[in-house]
């Protein structure tokens, strides 16, 4: 965006004092905790990334969250405003004064962002992924990989399956993927985020892998990416991923849902989708192995 366009936008933007926002499930606790100063990590037209220090079990750690406009990608660490970036200038907003998070609001100088409602960011699926859908998604992803590199892609299911079974394998995979690649969310992290969120939704046991990934992530990957991995481990992800998960378990065309994931970021979408696909493949094998999916606490009441 040119400077003059920014200036023009600024002139037209009259920010109200109170801005309602939808609050991702995984950020609600942070919003309602005691107020503390937040630091700006990065500012973009549709997203501002911020961090606060919090103590988890005695150890201080960085927690990242995002202030997003309505047209931004809905990160599971987001406070999502009801207005698009065409009607609000986030950089002006966050530069209006000290930024304080907590006590039910995010205060930005004279402006207050309030948590008006809770956004569902936890993935929910109904049943196991279907073989045909997994195969279709896999074929489409391989076609993209071939088109990009001319080479067949990694055998992600083969790489990740052992990581669910043993601690050493989990650590090995983490060393291989965490922080691998450029950007705020390296591609290796995106693969893991897609895998973790889908595996959690499909009720695979991800405890060992998640421990290894989060351990490895400290200091080795950007704070935002580490935060998104934590959310993924809690089963929290993007709405596009939710739609893909839903379609993987239903006899519906997979193309639109997969394309929506592929459109995320520059290359993040492909990495996320590959991780989701790998988890679906493993979940399908596990279900076939058991003949039936273990009922989860959330669907156990159903007389299926």
């Amino acid at each position: 965006m040119s400077t003059s366009a920014k200036t023009a936008k600024h002139r037209h933007t009259d920010h109200p004092d109170v801005l309602p926002a939808g609050v991702a499930q995984g950020v609600r606790d942070l919003l309602e905790d005691t107020p503390r100063v937040a630091h700006i990590l990065g500012t973009f037209p549709t997203a501002v990334y911020l961090s606060v220090r919090e103590s988890a079990g005695g150890a201080a750690r960085t927690r990242v969250f995002a202030l997003l406009t309505a047209d931004a990608i809905r990160l599971p660490c987001g406070l999502v405003l009801g207005v698009p970036s065409s009607r609000i200038c986030l950089p002006d907003l966050v530069n209006a004064g000290p930024v304080v998070l907590g006590g039910g609001a995010l205060r930005l100088g004279p402006h207050t962002v309030t948590g008006a409602r809770t956004l569902r960011t936890r993935m929910v699926v109904d049943g196991a992924p279907l073989a045909g859908q997994i195969a279709e998604a896999g074929a489409r992803l391989r076609a993209i990989e071939r088109a990009r590199s001319g080479l067949p892609g990694l055998d992600l299911p083969g790489l990740l399956a052992p990581a669910l079974r043993g601690r050493r394998e989990a650590q090995r995979v983490s060393r291989e993927l965490v922080g691998r690649g450029p950007g705020l969310t390296p591609a290796g992290d995106d693969v893991l985020a897609g895998f973790l969120v889908a595996a959690t939704a499909f009720r695979l046991d991800t405890d060992m892998l998640l421990d290894a990934v989060l351990d490895r992530a400290i200091g080795r990957t950007p704070d935002l990416s580490a935060q998104l991995l934590r959310h993924a481990g809690a089963g929290e992800g993007l709405p596009q991923v939710q739609t893909l998960l839903t379609v993987l378990t239903a006899a519906r065309p997979i193309g639109p849902a997969l394309d929506a994931v592929l459109r995320i970021g520059h290359s993040s979408g492909y990495a996320l989708a590959s991780g989701v696909h790998a988890a679906a493949a493993l979940a399908h094998n596990a279900a076939r192995h058991r003949r039936t999916v273990r009922p989860s606490p959330s669907t156990g009441r159903r007389g299926s």
């Binding site: 939808g22 499930q25 008006a116 409602r117 809770t118 956004l119 569902r120 959330s298």
Partner: peptide, 16 residues
């Protein structure tokens, strides 16, 4: 609907 109250509605959290 999805945590959004329409008409006269109370603010409630997502749940079962």
């Amino acid at each position: 609907v999805r945590g959004t109250g329409l008409g006269f509605a109370n603010a409630v959290d997502p749940g079962p």
